[in-house]
Amino acid sequence: MDENLIDDYARLLFDYHFLKQPLKKADCIFVLGSHDPSVADYAAQLYNEGFASYIIFSGGVVRPIGELRNTEPKSEAEAFFDIAVRHGVPAEAILLENAATNTGENFIFTKKLLKDRKLNFNSFILIQKPYMIRRTYATAMVQFKEYDFVVSALPDTYDSYLTRCLKEGISKERVISNMTGDLQRLKIYPAKGFLIPMEIPDEVWTAYEQLLMLGFEGRMATQV
């Protein structure tokens, strides 16, 4: 198996998924849950730079995350809370949504949290891993369309992101399988009403098919 060829295919997917939008100040930074602690690091950075006055961490999946992987397991939101506080974000500036188990629920349950708390936030910076930014945007255009938002992730290339993941104990196979899984979702989820359609360039789809043939299909969604 040619690792350079695999990386070339994976780099095409990464660059496609990492939709770039200009940052602007917002009422709140909204972080969608994942296994990647860098999203919490980035949220704290933006908070400390004055981009928003509040952070919402959404994610109910309990899993080991970053430096916290050897501590008592916590939900994604709780683990991200700990990371943000360690970076100097005041606890009172953080809201936790601890029930969501997927991207759609991140939006649905966070909207419920806003309503229940009577919070009149109108603008958001949505934060996720780089290769989930396009799907986050496409989902928000359905689930969060009444709000003003931009999507953002810690600036990265495929190579720098993969290097950091390997240091965190996240394998290359998992990263690439996550990316093929996200592209599959971008293809099939519009028909289910989960997100808006996004044009997928032919070269990106060809790279996706090649990666599937090479076995990077461990994170695919069911199509039923």
Results as ranks from 00 to 15, higher is better:
Leu13Ile: 01
Gly169Arg: 08
Tyr137Val: 11
Ala40Asn: 05
Gly193Glu: 14
Phe149Val: 05
Glu49Trp: 10
Asp82Ile: 12
Tyr147Val: 00
Ile83Met: 12
Arg69Lys: 15
Asn106Arg: 09
Tyr189Arg: 08
Leu126Lys: 05
Lys118Asp: 10
Leu154Asp: 05
Phe51Ser: 09
Met220Phe: 13
Val61Pro: 09
Thr163Cys: 00
Asp36Arg: 07
Lys20Phe: 09
Ala77Gln: 11
Ala221Ile: 10
Val85Asp: 01
Leu114Val: 07
Asn48Val: 10
Gln184Asp: 01
Ser152Ala: 14
Leu211Arg: 01
Val142Gln: 12
Ala77Pro: 09
Gly88His: 03
Ala43Lys: 07
Arg174Thr: 07
Lys20His: 11
Leu23Trp: 13
Leu126Glu: 10
Tyr137Trp: 11
Leu212Arg: 14
Glu49Val: 13
Ile108Met: 14
Leu19Asp: 11
Asp116Trp: 03
Gln45Ser: 11
Asn178Ser: 02
Thr110Trp: 06
Lys118Leu: 06
Met179His: 03
Asp159Tyr: 15
Phe51Gln: 00
Glu105His: 07
Ile65Pro: 14
Gly215Arg: 01
His17Ala: 01
Asp15His: 07
Thr157Val: 09
Ala221Ser: 10
Glu173Met: 08
Ala100Thr: 06
Asn178His: 00
Glu97Gly: 04
Met179Asn: 05
Pro90Asp: 07
Ile65Tyr: 14
Lys111Glu: 12
Val31Lys: 08
Asn102Thr: 02
Gln143Lys: 15
Ala153Ile: 01
Ile108Asn: 12
Asp27Ala: 11
Gln143Thr: 15
Tyr137Met: 10
Pro37Gln: 08
Ala191Glu: 11
Asp36Asn: 07
Asp27Gln: 12
Gly88Phe: 01
Leu214Phe: 06
Arg135Phe: 04
Ala10Ser: 11
Tyr208Val: 09
Glu173Gly: 00
Phe81Ile: 01
Glu146Ser: 03
Lys115Glu: 14
Phe109Lys: 15
Val175Leu: 02
Ser58Gly: 04
Arg63Asp: 06
Ser177Pro: 00
Ala207Met: 01
Lys167Ser: 14
Glu203Leu: 04
Val151Ile: 03
Glu3Ala: 15
Ala100Trp: 12
Leu19Pro: 07
Thr222Met: 15
Phe124Met: 04
Phe124Asn: 04
Lys167Phe: 13
Thr110Glu: 02
Tyr147Met: 02
Thr103His: 00
Tyr131Gly: 03
Gly66Val: 05
Leu68Asn: 12
Pro201Ala: 08
Gln184Ser: 00
Lys192Ile: 06
Val150Asp: 10
